[in-house]
């Protein structure tokens, strides 16, 4: 705000705003074109809908497969987020507070997950699941979604717990609190901000995940929303407004979360990456 109004300043601002518009415009374009009829879309792909219609959405809901996919995605996202928060908090607390043989190894083991090229694990994980016989179940995707969320979660939580004075835990312990009470009644509530960040990132990742879903799930009744969108996009490749409505439906929860919690989400991504 304090910068003087000079020509370079105007040019730089204009260029940056133009750039920022190119990052958000495609999604806005998708949203308003999803409200057009196919005829209106082919007339002009740029114009705002003159006669908005929910035809595409009605059509998608009538077919109905989207409900199953949304429910599945919600289940995978909520369940894996809960598991990630719980498991990573236990691990992070122990790593941050106690010295024990193997501590460094456990820490490195979890950090490794941040550097692994995860799609390379698709085929090996598929082989293992096929051998055990756990492909295509309601819980199949929960395991990889939880596992891959753990690395980042352990990392963020461990750093946060380290900054809480250990004297707090010790005072509670002296007063007769058990380890369990110290962890979950005393320290966990203090960790609320980082728990929120971890929960948001986990939810986003699980809701959006596609690679493991397409590898491990064949059964329609367990397909999450990205997998549904890919199938739907293949079937409706020429009905552009319908495809766009599908894209909007797959993104609504994510966009809503981003609007309300953008600071926390950005912070989590930045913090996680810097530690990697």
């Amino acid at each position: 705000m304090t910068g003087r109004i000079t020509l370079p300043a105007i040019l730089i601002n204009a260029a940056l705003i133009l750039f920022a518009l190119t990052t958000i415009f495609p999604m806005i374009w998708v949203i308003y074109n999803s409200l057009k009829s196919t005829a209106a879309f082919s007339e002009s792909i740029f114009a705002l809908p003159s006669d908005p219609t929910f035809r595409a959405y009605v059509q998608i809901f009538e077919v109905g497969t989207v409900w199953t996919a949304m429910w599945n995605s919600l289940f995978y996202a909520v369940a894996s987020t809960t598991l990630i928060v719980l498991l990573s908090y236990c691990i992070a607390y122990v790593l941050a507070r106690f010295e024990f043989p193997g501590r460094a190894a456990v820490f490195s083991f979890f950090i490794l997950g941040l550097l692994l090229p995860i799609p390379a694990l698709l085929v090996p994980v598929f082989m293992q699941y096929r051998t055990i016989g756990i492909l295509d179940t309601q819980f199949t995707l929960l395991i990889p979604y939880t596992a891959f969320g753990l690395s980042l979660a352990v990392f963020l939580m461990e750093g946060y717990i380290r900054k809480i004075p250990v004297e707090l835990d010790e005072a509670a312990h002296v007063d007769g609190a058990s380890l369990f009470t110290v962890m979950f009644v005393i320290v966990f509530p203090i960790c609320r901000p980082i728990v929120a960040t971890v929960a948001l990132l986990s939810f986003l990742h699980s809701w959006n995940e596609f690679a493991f879903a397409t590898t491990l799930i064949r059964d329609e009744s367990y397909k999450p929303i990205p997998l549904w969108l890919r199938t739907f996009g293949g079937q409706y490749a020429t009905d552009y407004p319908a495809l766009m409505a599908g894209m909007v439906l797959a993104s609504v929860p994510i966009i809503v979360l981003f609007i309300f919690f953008r600071e926390k989400i950005v912070e989590g991504f930045a913090g996680g990456a810097v530690k990697a």
Partner: peptide, 25 residues
């Protein structure tokens, strides 16, 4: 970071926005 820019918050949020979308979308 240079104080020349008028709306850093908007720019950051807008440029970050696609990161959170599903790769399929």
């Amino acid at each position: 970071n240079s104080r020349l820019v008028i709306a850093p918050k908007f720019l950051r949020t807008a440029i970050f926005f696609p990161v959170i979308l599903s790769p399929v979308v």
